[in-house]
Structures are given as C-alpha cells and as structure tokens.
Design a protein around this nucleic acid. Sequence first.
DNA 1: TCCATATTGATAATCATTCCTAATTACATT
DNA 2: AATGTAATTAGGAATGATTATCAATATGGA
Lengths: 128, 128
Amino acid sequence: MIINMERTTSQKEIIFKFLEKTESHPSAEEVYAGVKKKKPRISRATVYRNLKNLKNKGRIQEIPAEVSHYDGNISSHAHFLCQKCGRIFDVFEICQGCGILRKKKVKVGEINKFKLYLYGYCRNCKRK
Amino acid sequence: MIINMERTTSQKEIIFKFLEKTESHPSAEEVYAGVKKKKPRISRATVYRNLKNLKNKGRIQEIPAEVSHYDGNISSHAHFLCQKCGRIFDVFEICQGCGILRKKKVKVGEINKFKLYLYGYCRNCKRK
DNA sequence: TCCATATTGATAATCATTCCTAATTACATT
DNA sequence: AATGTAATTAGGAATGATTATCAATATGGA
C-alpha cells in the first residue's frame, strides 16, 4: 500500500487549467469566482489549498501584494504592476543574459530563483 | 491658515529612526515591539498608520510577503529571502548598468521603480 | 496663550487566509 | 466490479494582519 500518494481531482484540474489559460493574474478570490462557473459547489478553502499546493510544487507562481495574485505561466518573465489601476502585466523583454539574472550566488547565500517587479503607469492609465 | 499641514510627532520620528538604524527588515509587529521600548504607550494602529505613510512618501520600502516587512534603506538594492529561515538580507551586488535595470519603458508602460527579490538558502541554512 | 486641526490610543471591524472535521472520493488491491 | 483506506473536499468557524472609528490629545501658527 502506497501512502501519501497524491490523487488527481476534478477540482485541482479545473483550478490549474483556469490559471493556465488566463493572462490576467487573478487573485485567489477571482480564481474562486472563475472556477465556480465550472464547478458551482467548489469550496473557497479548496481553491486556497490548491493554489498553495500548486505554488509549492512550482506549477504556478504567486505575486505577493496587498492581496496575492497568481500566474499559471512559470516561464521566465517579469511583472509590471500599474500603480494606478492595479493591473498586472507580463513583461518578457527582460535581459536574460545580463549579470544579475544569471548569478547563482551572492554574499548572503545561493540563489534558486528570482522575481522582478516593475512599478509604474500602464499605457492605459498614462493617457489621463 | 494652512490646512492639511503635516505635523512632526515623537511617534513618527521614533518609528522612522528605528527602521533607519536596523538592517533586519522587521515586520510591522516587530517595529511595534521595538518602538514600544522607547515609547511604551504607543498604539499598534499608530505604527501601522505611519509605516503606510512613510512608504507612500517613499521614505521607506515595503517587502510584501505572507506578512509585510519594512526597510528603512531606500537606496538601490535587491533582497534575498531565505526559503528556510525566512530572514531577509540586503544584496548590493546588483548589476546597476545592465539592461533591465536602466530600462525606463516596456511595452505595457513606463517604469518608475523596480524591485528584485532573490530566493534561496542563506549561508547559515545552507550548511545543514 | 489660544485655537483649529492633525494625530494618537484604544478598540472594534474587516477581510484574506487557514483550520477543523465529517462526508466524499480516488485508486490500489482483491 | 466491489472493497478498504487514505487523500481530499465542503462548509463553516477561527485566526491573524491590517484598517476604520472616534473621543482625547498634541502641534504649531497667530
């Protein structure tokens, strides 16, 4: 008998697929609202629990802010957070080759991963 | 009569000085515990309120995580977050000259500031 | 010193997230 | 296909960080 074996559930799959196909970086609450359409009886706790698990397994990433947001895209990219409307955008124009992003060690320890957040006004908010 | 004039209070000064002279990136609760030594009757709400104000004025910076931490050093530097002990370290070995950190614009908008977080194991935790 | 008002202290309220637990479900084994 | 058992869920209560409220206090210009 294998113990501690992970099981696939419809809830897990729905949550992951929802994040995989959106680019809007939804909050947990927004994920909850979204997956409810497919599975109306899903529990909020299930959403939070699975977001946490998916993150710990590295299948999604969390963007910490006043309220956490989630991104199903784990490819190497930065995030632009609009200081006016609060929307989060993917930024792929990062200089992959440059020093800091290739660095594996700094004085204080060994780097496993990094996150780069850019703050400013998005195109839409800048106009006004 | 000037309205909406900011006033200096001992609470504000104590909170700012506390952050200025520490390098430990304390949470709001830790700031509260620290400034209580100088001003025992200070209120928790006053600490949260002033941390928020100082941050909005750009005099300190916030490091968002499960619980927010604060840094009185607003010079350009990255943060290393140990994935084991949770401690936060300053990293000054960032490549100031390289592309992304000098960039002022990306497709989605104009960059005012950026934050770079490095994740890994600190020297102390790596040993074990 | 006086006054208008910005700020504080104390506590209640809010809100995101986690915990609890009985009911349900997945899946290895029969 | 049926069974047993451990993993997972639903639902609601609990937690904990942060914010709101408001009477009391303190700042700083006149």
